[in-house]
C-alpha cells in the first residue's frame, strides 16, 4: 500500500507558552477531500502551516509522500492557497498570467528560466479554474472570488498532487462560494487532486468533501464524513466548547453541525 501523502505523527506546537496544537496525528491519503473544521483559535491554520513547513512543531514528525518533511525535496507536489487577506500584496502591478506563472518558480528551479511552453501551462491552469478569459487582466481589477481562482490556478500550474487551502472563501460573496466549492470538487474528482481545506463554510462544503477532521488544539474526530454522526454529544462539546446541534438530513446518511 502506498504511503499517505501527508502523515502527521503526534505533533504538538507551542507559541509563546500557549499550546496551539497537542498530540495531533492525521493521515491524508491520495484522493481525499479533507475539511479541517473547528472554532476560531482551534489551531486550524497553524496545523496547515505545520504541514507546509512554514512553522516547526515543538514535538512530533511529519512525513510527506513517505519522506520525513525535513528531507522532502518535491515542494512543487504540494500546492498552497492562503487566506487572500493575509498574504497577497494588494496593489501589485501584475497580470493574471504573470501571477500564475509564478507558481512554476519552484518547479523550474533556482538559476533556471521558466520552461519555454510556460504560457501553455498557465493557460491550462486558468482553464481548469474557469479564468482563461482574464489572462491579460491586472490581478487588482478582479473580484475576491476571481482572485482566489487565480491563486488556485497558480497552485495548479505546477501540477501538484495535493492542494492545501486555508479558508479560501474569505472575502468571497455568498453567491460565488457555491460555485467555488463545485470547482474544488471537480479538481478532486476529475483531476484526482487531493485536497486539504480549512473552512468555516461547514454547511456548504459538507456535500463535496470525503473526509472531516474536527480540531480544537487536538483532533476530536477524523474519518469519512458519513461517520461524523458517530461522534457523541460529549465529544462534540469537547470539540466546539459548547453544545452543538446535530442536524440529520432527511434520507441522507451524513450529518451537519
Amino acid at each position: 500500500m502506498d504511503a499517505p501523502l501527508i502523515n502527521i505523527k503526534e505533533i504538538s506546537y507551542e507559541y509563546e507558552q500557549t499550546r496551539a496544537l497537542e498530540n495531533i496525528s492525521l493521515k491524508v491519503e491520495e484522493g481525499d477531500f479533507l475539511a479541517i473544521l473547528g472554532p476560531n483559535g482551534s489551531g486550524k491554520s497553524t496545523l496547515l502551516k505545520v504541514m507546509l513547513g512554514l512553522i516547526k512543531p515543538t514535538k512530533g514528525q511529519i512525513e510527506l509522500f513517505g519522506v520525513d518533511s525535513k528531507n522532502f525535496k518535491h515542494r512543487e507536489w504540494i500546492g498552497y492557497v492562503s487566506q487572500k487577506s493575509n498574504s497577497f500584496n494588494s496593489g501589485f502591478p501584475a497580470t493574471v498570467e504573470e501571477v500564475v506563472a509564478g507558481g512554476l518558480a519552484k518547479k523550474a528551479g533556482l538559476f533556471h528560466r521558466l520552461p519555454k511552453n510556460y504560457k501553455q501551462h498557465v493557460k491550462d491552469a486558468l482553464v481548469s479554474v474557469g479564468m482563461e478569459a482574464f489572462s491579460g487582466r491586472s490581478v487588482n481589477e478582479l473580484s475576491g472570488g476571481q482572485q482566489q481562482r487565480v491563486f488556485i490556478a497558480r497552485a495548479l500550474v505546477a501540477k501538484p498532487k495535493v492542494l492545501i487551502l486555508d479558508e479560501p472563501t474569505v472575502g468571497i460573496d455568498h453567491q460565488n462560494v457555491q460555485s467555488f466549492y463545485n470547482m474544488l470538487a471537480s479538481l478532486n474528482r476529475d483531476q484526482n487532486i487531493t485536497l486539504v481545506l480549512v473552512t468555516h463554510d461547514v454547511d456548504t462544503v459538507t456535500d463535496r468533501i470525503t473526509h472531516v477532521a474536527c480540531l480544537n488544539q487536538t483532533i476530536h474526530f477524523h474519518g469519512f464524513k458519513e461517520q461524523l454522526h458517530t461522534m457523541s454529544d460529549a465529544q462534540r462539546e469537547a470539540w466546539y466548547g459548547h453544545s452543538v446541534r446535530k442536524i440529520h438530513h432527511i434520507g441522507g446518511s451524513h450529518s451537519h453541525v
Partner: peptide, 12 residues
C-alpha cells in the same frame, strides 16, 4: 514580492 507566505510555502 507578490506573496511572501506563498514563496516560503512553495519551498523557495
Amino acid at each position: 514580492s507578490f506573496d511572501d507566505e506563498y514563496a516560503k510555502a512553495s519551498g523557495l
